[in-house]
């Protein structure tokens, strides 16, 4: 299958510092990939290289067979910068009209602005917009011109939870029309978890690139069970399960994903001393921390 974005052994030096080290990453049409890493891990640099805004020091990047920064690549690529900004004296409609004209062809500006929830504010100056509204305008310009590749840098920053739901919908819509979507983020939240694949950068090196279930399995992080005991029974339950009492009435224990059902059956067998049970799979943050902090290649270089 033809990949839309192909990154092969991409490296970047800033002075003598190696910012990116032999990065390989592919995104297929309609695929959603999250690119995670702490600040300074090289996500933004990689995005700039894909956009042709900064040259590669080594390796190769192609966007639908075109070189980064070429006319064809720029036409095919949409970009949402981190904390996106626009000229404050233009209105949302004027700004989007300018972008549409630069792409060429027809665009339903009003429809797009309605789509991202700026229908009411489209004729107000951007200087009056909140951060969330500017982010929405940024999303609207991503939807212009049906891109083959969409690069979203921290798309959730400044968005309230409701807007995040809209963001998922827009990302899904992009993927459904065959756009390859790459989302850079410094944390693994719901948005990134909804992607098809997750790549993690750490100090300019790719340390993981897989689906979320696979990453969870490899990391082997435990599931947390919290048992609420009937009055005075917490101590007994803690003894029987080998968990720890965390307050007067609750017991907490951890188990591997594979032992989860076995553990649940054991607890269920305890009868009505157990009032309630709460199960928390490994948190995304834990998983992310595992990969982002994992010792990798250090001491060898």
């Amino acid at each position: 299958m033809d990949k839309t974005l192909i990154i092969r052994a991409a490296s970047k030096f800033r002075g003598k510092v190696r910012v990116l080290n032999d990065i390989d990453l592919c995104v297929a049409p309609g695929e959603r990939v999250a690119l995670l890493g702490h600040n300074g891990a090289g996500k933004s640099t990689l995005m700039k290289m894909i956009l042709g805004l900064t040259p590669l020091s080594g390796g190769e990047i192609t966007i639908d067979a075109a070189a980064p920064g070429s006319g064809a690549a720029r036409r095919d690529t949409a970009f949402l910068p981190e904390s996106v900004n626009f000229h404050p004296t233009l209105t949302g409609r004027e700004q989007l009209t300018l972008f549409a004209r630069l792409i060429g062809g027809r665009a339903d500006i009003e429809g797009l602005l309605d789509r991202v929830g700026l229908g009411e504010a489209m004729d107000n100056r951007i200087s009056t917009y909140s951060k969330g509204m500017r982010q929405r305008l940024g999303l609207a310009q991503v939807l212009l011109g049906r891109p083959k590749l969409a690069l979203l840098d921290e798309p959730t920053s400044g968005l309230d939870p409701l807007s995040r739901q809209d963001l998922y919908a827009i990302i899904d819509e992009l993927a459904a029309q065959g756009t390859a979507v790459l989302i850079a983020s410094h944390a693994l939240t719901e948005v990134e978890a909804q992607t098809d694949r997750i790549a993690i950068l750490r100090k300019g090196v790719k340390v993981a690139d897989d689906t979320l279930p696979n990453l969870s399995r490899i990391a082997g992080l435990p599931t947390r069970l919290r048992i609420l005991a009937r009055d005075g029974q917490a101590g007994r339950i803690a003894d029987e399960t080998g968990g720890t009492r965390i307050n007067g009435a609750s017991v907490e224990l951890y188990c591997d994903a594979s032992e989860k059902m076995q553990e649940l059956r054991r607890i269920a067998a305890m009868g009505d001393t157990v009032v309630d049970i709460e199960m928390t799979p490994p948190r995304l943050e834990d998983l992310y921390r595992y990969y982002a902090a994992k010792e990798f290649g250090e001491g060898q270089a």
Binding site: K48, L51, G52, L53, G71, R74, R75, T77, A78, F79, P81, S83, V84, N85, F86, H87, P88, F99, L102, I103, G104, Q141
Partner: peptide, 14 residues
Amino acid sequence: DRGTLALLLTYPAG
């Protein structure tokens, strides 16, 4: 300075 240049440069205008 406003951060609008990078976005503009990703559009097809040279």
